[in-house]
């Protein structure tokens, strides 16, 4: 399946890109993050992140479908 990933803040710096499409066998967001950690060497553990799928917050056990847009959300710092 192919997933679209958008990167922000620390994850954008470590991935060296704003977004990418990835062909993956990962069935849920948790497995997908571990795959991306291996690929880009993300230092941030899962416990510090939230997840959004297709523009809405989602759980780590959220099953992924072909074409989903996934965003891993580092600790926010607006204001």
């Amino acid at each position: 399946m192919t997933y679209r990933v958008l990167y922000f803040a620390t994850l954008r710096d470590q991935a060296g890109r704003d977004e990418e499409s990835i062909v993956s066998d990962a069935a849920d967001v948790s497995a997908f993050y571990e795959e991306l950690r291996g690929r880009h060497g993300f230092s941030m553990p899962r416990e510090k992140l939230r997840v959004a799928v297709n523009g809405e917050f989602a759980g780590w056990d959220r099953a992924l479908r072909d074409g989903d847009e996934v965003v891993f959300i580092p600790p926010v710092s607006g204001g």
């Binding site: 922000f8 803040a9 959004a52 965003v71 926010v76 710092s77 607006g78």
Partner: peptide
């Protein structure tokens, strides 16, 4: 807003 909205400050 500071706690929840996905905005990041560099």
């Amino acid at each position: 807003v500071k706690k929840r909205v996905p905005i990041w400050k560099n």
